[in-house]
């Protein structure tokens, strides 16, 4: 019974959201506000279950008192509610910003930037770059290495604004914009496909989980 009620709620909300395709209407606005309200409350409990319980409450129950410090910092964050003491919230913000900055300086450089540069330093006249995907490897050709090098370097030059884009730099930046446009187009195509697969999922739900069982129950 619970499942049937759930499916009807989900189907109703899905149709209300899709009604926006006709025009902005009260049904869409209703579902939109339900979405924000429900998601906000859900996020509170998600944070509680997956972050605060394992990292703050459980350690405290096991007498690991060190977690009192971030607990106090967290409480200091709430001083933003009171304008006179809002400056106290800078302390926990400073800790969060410090942790994030420290991670970027070392981990991001070692785990992301250096491997990316390493994979761009390819031999132009050597073996072609190979991928795990056997289909892609059918296209492997030493020219691929050159395309990767030229694409990466020219894209970087396009975003170099310390010198005017004239002469050699201007020409290189023009090649860069070609690569950037190709990348944006491909990313756009990829995003469209992802959204369409979501749309197919919703239509599949409406037909198979809601309408077909409804018709079956009506015809029996």
């Amino acid at each position: 019974m619970g499942q049937i009620i759930g499916v009807w709620i989900a189907a109703g909300l899905t149709l209300m959201i899709f009604s926006f395709l006709y025009k902005d209407n009260p049904f869409y606005k209703f579902a939109e506000h339900v979405y924000v309200g429900v998601s906000a409350a859900y996020t509170c409990f998600y944070t509680w279950d997956y972050f605060l319980m394992p990292k703050l409450i459980n350690p405290l129950l096991q007498h690991h008192w060190l977690v009192i410090i971030p607990g106090i910092f967290g409480a200091m964050m709430l001083t933003r509610w009171f304008p006179r003491s809002a400056w106290v919230s800078r302390w926990p913000i400073a800790v969060s910003v410090g942790v994030a900055s420290g991670l970027v300086v070392v981990q991001y450089m070692q785990g992301f930037v250096i491997p990316q540069i390493q994979n761009t330093l390819l031999p132009i006249a050597g073996p072609a770059v190979t991928f795990n995907n056997p289909i892609t490897n059918l296209w492997n050709h030493p020219l691929n290495n050159l395309i990767i090098i030229v694409g990466t370097v020219t894209t970087l030059v396009y975003f170099y604004f310390s010198k005017k884009h004239k002469g050699f730099i201007g020409g290189t930046a023009k090649v860069g914009i070609i690569f950037i446009m190709v990348a944006f187009g491909a990313s756009f195509g990829y995003t469209v496909m992802a959204r369409i697969s979501l749309l197919i999922g919703r239509i599949h739900f409406l037909i198979n989980d809601w309408l077909l069982p409804l018709f079956r129950s009506l015809t029996h």
């Binding site: 995907n133 694409g151 990466t152 020219t154 894209t155 970087l156 860069g176 690569f179 190709v182």
Partner: peptide, 11 residues
């Protein structure tokens, strides 16, 4: 894998 990745890598 080739031109798209090259530009994305640059960015």
């Amino acid at each position: 894998f080739i031109p798209q990745m090259a530009a994305k890598r640059g960015i």
